[in-house]
């Protein structure tokens, strides 16, 4: 075990960001912490890296205090921050950060892994948004860490940069490093993660492999064009959510066959029918919706 939250509650004034959360991260895994805005993702990361203290419970990093130098020397961190000092160049920033680690990556290796070699001598203030984001990534990996924390690492990156970024994450993981990330791009989290921790309103709703989480909701997605009122569809048994997408309607259901039979019975001119397995986003939505709909089902709850 490399990082752990044990029965952690975190309050900011009246707001409870995390409620009795327990979480243990294993070495060599890519773990994605997902959840709606305000679910407590960033708070969980900040507790694990010792940027904030738990109100109750304990946080441990490499079997020690998260704020200790020993733990931090093995950890790289990328946070959602707006700027780093603008008058230093990319190379200078990396040189300064890596100097605090006992066995850092070389500057050139860091630059090439993050696609920054071409702008190495440019000042931070003269970089584009995507390049700035990559500098923050470079600062996280330059210390050659065993464990990487990445808070919304791909915000502001274009599609191509995002692809390159996930490729580098896979490479880092294949080198035996552990990665913990939060992201809004669930498809990408699905592709890259060994494990998903789903947070909702400060509690762990699900903690499993992406495959198991998708299987847990056992949902499929029906997409079609129909005259049936979506509000009526939403009332049906077995329909967990209904979403309009242009002329089409997207229905998430546990029993696709039955819903489709019922739909054809009411609208025989139903068209453009597609049925697919639910993706991670559907699963997360369904799991969060379950909780918001009432008491948590037997399959959810805090994982010890």
């Amino acid at each position: 075990m490399i990082a752990e939250l044990h029965a952690v509650t975190k309050r900011y004034g009246d707001l409870t960001a995390l409620r009795d959360v327990s979480l243990a991260l294993e070495a060599g895994q890519v773990t994605s912490v997902l959840g709606p805005n305000g679910a407590g993702k960033t708070t969980a990361v900040k507790l694990l890296i010792g940027l904030t203290r738990p109100t109750r419970g304990t946080a441990r990093l490499f079997q020690t205090e998260p704020r200790s130098v020993a733990a931090r020397r093995r950890t790289g961190v990328m946070l959602q921050i707006s700027k780093v000092p603008e008058t230093l160049t990319v190379r200078e920033h990396i040189a300064s950060f890596r100097s605090h680690y006992p066995a850092p990556l070389s500057i050139d290796d860091t630059l090439s892994r993050t696609g920054l070699a071409a702008v190495a001598d440019r000042r931070f203030g003269h970089l584009s948004g995507g390049q700035r984001q990559r500098v923050l990534f470079a600062l996280a990996i330059c210390g050659n860490p065993d464990l990487l924390f990445l808070d919304e690492p791909t915000v502001g990156l274009d599609v191509e940069s995002r692809r390159a970024f996930w490729q580098e994450i896979r490479r880092l993981a294949s080198e035996g490093r552990s990665v913990v990330l939060t992201t809004h791009y669930l498809e990408e989290a699905d592709a890259v993660s060994d494990r998903i921790v789903l947070l909702d309103r400060g509690m762990v709703t699900a903690d499993d492999t992406p495959h198991a989480i998708k299987a847990r909701v056992a949902s499929r997605r029906i997409r079609c064009v129909t005259r049936i009122d979506p509000h009526v569809l939403g009332q049906w048994e077995d329909v967990s959510s209904v979403r309009l997408d242009g002329a089409a309607v997207e229905i998430l259901t546990r029993d696709a066959e039955r819903v489709i039979r019922e739909m054809f019975a009411r609208d025989d001119r139903l068209s453009a029918l597609e049925v697919t397995g639910a993706n991670l986003e559907d699963a997360c939505l369904a799991l969060t919706a379950q909780r918001n709909g009432g008491a948590p089902s037997a399959s959810t709850g805090v994982v010890p």
Partner: peptide, 17 residues
């Protein structure tokens, strides 16, 4: 200014004393 940008928070997360 560096605190406002979040730079100090990031620095705090490094082993730098």
């Amino acid at each position: 200014v560096e605190r406002g940008h979040g730079w100090l928070t990031l620095k705090r997360a490094t082993p730098m004393p």
